[in-house]
Simulated assay, not measured.
Amino acid sequence: MNAAPHSSSEADTPAVAGTQAFGKFMRVLQLVADAEQPPNVAALMRATGFPRPTVHRIVAALVAERMLLEDPATHGLALGPRLIQLAGRAWGRSDLRLGAADALRRLRDATGETVHLAVPSGRAMVFIDKLESPAAVRMSSRIGSSVPLHVTAVGKAWLAALPPAERAAQLDGLPLPRHTDHTLTDPAALRAELDLTAARGWSTDREEHETGVYCFGAPVLGADGRPVAAISVTTLVFRQRADVAQAYVAPLLAACAAVSERLAQQPRPDPCGTA
């Protein structure tokens, strides 16, 4: 039996059914994940502009699926165990994260400081791994959080390792909001900083993202020589060692080289799909 012809063109039909609804769910999840304090339904309404019934329906569905947890006393919302479990499995199976694990551990042990592994995501970097310093004072960053390119050591390391034309394209129109008194908000100053970073092979965040926090970063290169990630060492200004080159930069560059070499040794996919 032949199917009846469609009454409307394919252009009138959404490419993927349910995309709009799914986008609303993801918007709510992202807002909860990024919030400094657990938001309630009213806060989510203000942030999204969605009607109260829509937000209630989304929150109820996410709570039922254990993607969100609601505090019965305050009605504040936090990420739920199912979402965290899924994220943990994704990070645990990441080839990059697994390939960098030993190098990150050695770097943390060599410096005694917190280390991060980050990958580019749009015009930001996302932390996909973090090993805490054994020191008493620790960093507030967390796995899964995104950070700006222009104020972070990982962001500047990744930008500087790009070919000049691609770096210029990334910087074109890049917002440069001020986070501290040390933030580079002038495009020319940032370009000069990236030129210096590219020449020496490592970057710095000199209290540009958080006051009192100093970071060193360097890129991780893929098999084709392009930057695919960046690693940073984060210390606090009051305990930063004077011998920067030996204390932080040398072990950082060694870690990045080890991860890059491991990535280069991985078999590259066959573009034709043949064995």
Rank of each mutant, 00 (worst) to 15 (best):
L176P: 14
D172N: 11
G222W: 12
T183Q: 12
Q170L: 09
A242T: 08
E166G: 13
A198N: 07
A229R: 07
S203V: 03
A153W: 02
H179K: 03
A165R: 13
L176W: 12
D181H: 03
V249G: 03
G201V: 14
R178Q: 08
A157H: 04
W202H: 10
V244G: 02
R206C: 03
P148W: 04
L252S: 08
Q170W: 13
E208H: 09
A157N: 05
I143T: 15
L236M: 05
E166P: 10
L149Y: 10
S145L: 11
A245Y: 00
D181W: 01
H150F: 13
R241M: 01
H179F: 11
A258C: 06
E207N: 05
R167K: 13
G155S: 06
L159K: 11
V213T: 12
P175A: 00
D243S: 01
T185W: 01
D186I: 12
E210A: 05
E193M: 07
K156G: 03
A242N: 09
A247F: 00
R239T: 08
L162T: 12
A165E: 12
A254E: 14
I231T: 03
D224Y: 13
A157L: 05
I231G: 01
D181C: 00
R239Q: 07
A230R: 01
S145Y: 14
V228T: 10
I143C: 10
E193G: 11
T235N: 04
T180R: 05
Q246A: 07
L221E: 10
D205E: 06
P175Y: 00
A188P: 14
G155Q: 08
E207A: 10
A188G: 13
R178E: 08
P251Y: 00
E210Y: 04
I143Y: 06
H209I: 07
P175I: 02
G144I: 11
D224V: 15
A223I: 10
A247Y: 01
S146T: 15
V233D: 01
F216V: 01
E193P: 02
A192P: 08
D195H: 12
Y214F: 15
R226K: 07
A160T: 13
G225A: 13
K156R: 06
W202T: 02
L171Y: 14
A189F: 08
T180C: 07
Q170E: 10
R200L: 09
V237L: 14
A230G: 02
A229W: 07
T204A: 08
R241N: 00
T234W: 01
Y248I: 04
A250F: 01
G225M: 09
S203Q: 09
L171D: 14
V220H: 05
A160V: 05
T235F: 03
E207M: 06
T235Q: 04
R167V: 13
L174G: 09
A161D: 10
L194R: 09
D224N: 15
A188F: 02
D195T: 15
V220Y: 06
A157F: 04
V154E: 12
S232N: 05
L236S: 10
R206V: 01
F216A: 01
S203W: 06
Q246L: 02
P175L: 01
R226Q: 15
D195A: 14
Y248N: 05
L221Q: 09
A168P: 06
A218Y: 06
A245N: 00
L236R: 02
T197C: 14
K156V: 01
A245P: 00
T152W: 02
E207L: 05
G222R: 08
T185I: 08
D205M: 02
P227M: 14
L236Q: 05
G144D: 07
V151G: 07
A198Y: 13
V228D: 08
